[in-house]
Design a protein around this nucleic acid. Structure first.
Length: 355
DNA sequence: AACGCGGGGTC
DNA sequence: GACCCAGCGTT
């Protein structure tokens, strides 16, 4: 493609690359862990999770042996919890391979759960030196500007990235492109003055870099009021396990019900709220022995959802048999479970008095 | 191609 | 408050 530009970018990467925990790593398991954690997640966030994760799950064997609950607990706060479940399944799949050997090609890696086009290329190039492209959001933006392509398609990106990838240092090349996008070729106010490839950049020449790639239309955010039912009995509260497939899948949370009454919920529950609480409690095969009392509301923003959690606490009889999907937990037991951040904030309001 | 899926940093 | 991040799986 353009040997001069590639040399300039690699030289820039060598000179200024950040010192990250996984930099220079050669263990494919560790590289896979870092790449999965980095999916849709900022470097600064991943840095806080990476090393604790490796202390708990240092290799394929230890992660494959672990229970999914431990895996989710270690992932708690990172978001996109499907990633943790997929990673867990992926190392189990690796263990089942002949000799338990780690897949070494992008094609084989791609077959692992949670490993898509990007992650397969990244791990193959970084861990095994395969000449494979790796196109993430950063690279998309860099290439869109480099070639002044307003709306790059997946196939166009794959073609450009494949042409460009360095033949002897593919892993460093892919990381150099991503690092350029993260540090220099940023979404807003790109730092063209310090960019090592600005003199080959078509958008820079046209002055269109600020508009590349063109913004996608913004998705509308839905506002939701969510009733949370906090049943308390003998210093324990009832948590239910959320369905695997959906939002916050597999994590433990308070029983909830979406309310349509808007922001009117005050210090005392409305009749409508009382009725909804009763419905939820009935569904849990429990019985209330005291009045529902409001806890502080907790606001949490998901990407497409703006949720106001309205927790009500009440004493109840622990008539629920502990099935796999329900559990009466103490404070210390709650500490060991994977619980969504917003609901952890509700838990933090509890005093855990016995009776 | 579009959508669901977390949480947090940045401007 | 809007944007967006070292994406993937499903439909």
């Amino acid at each position: 493609m353009n040997p001069e530009a590639r040399t300039a970018l690699l030289a820039h990467y060598d000179a200024v690359r950040r010192d990250l925990p996984w930099r220079g790593e050669s263990d494919p398991y560790r590289i896979l862990v870092s790449e999965v954690m980095l999916q849709q997640t900022r470097v600064d966030t991943v840095v806080r999770y990476y090393e604790p994760w490796l202390r708990r799950f240092p290799d394929v064997e230890s992660l494959a042996d672990a229970d999914v609950d431990e895996v989710l607990r270690e992932w708690e706060g990172l978001g996109y919890y499907r990633r943790a479940r997929n990673l867990h399944a992926a190392v189990r799949a690796v263990r089942e391979r002949p000799g338990g050997e780690f897949p070494e090609t992008a094609l084989e890696l791609r077959a692992l759960p949670g490993v898509g086009e990007y992650t397969a290329g990244a791990v193959a190039s970084i861990a095994f030196g395969e000449v494979a492209p790796a196109v993430d959001g950063n690279v998309r933006r860099v290439l869109s500007r480099w070639f002044d392509e307003p709306e790059p398609t997946v196939s166009w990106l794959r073609a450009r990235a494949t042409e460009l990838v360095h033949l002897t240092r593919p892993g460093d090349w892919n990381q150099a492109l991503m690092e350029l996008g993260a540090v220099v070729c940023t979404p807003r106010n790109p730092k063209c003055a310090v960019c090592p490839v600005s003199k080959w950049c078509a958008a820079r020449a046209a002055g269109s870099q600020a508009e590349r790639p063109v913004r996608a239309r913004k998705p509308r955010v839905r506002a939701v009021d969510m009733l949370l039912v906090v049943l308390q009995c003998d210093g324990r509260v009832l948590l239910v396990r959320r369905p695997d497939g959906g939002l916050l899948g597999g994590m433990w949370a308070f029983p909830e019900s979406e309310m349509t009454l808007g922001a009117g919920a005050g210090p005392t529950p409305t009749e409508e709220m009382e009725a909804e609480i009763a419905t939820v409690v009935r569904g849990l095969d429990a019985a209330i022995v005291g009045p529902p009392l409001p806890l502080e509301t907790v606001v949490h923003r998901f990407t497409h959802l703006h949720v106001t959690y309205r927790p009500y606490i009440m004493k109840a009889t622990a008539t629920v048999a502990d099935g796999s999907g329900r559990a009466w937990v103490s404070a210390s037991e709650a500490g060991a479970l994977a619980i969504p951040v917003a609901q952890r904030r509700v838990l933090d309001q509890l005093t855990w008095e016995v009776r």
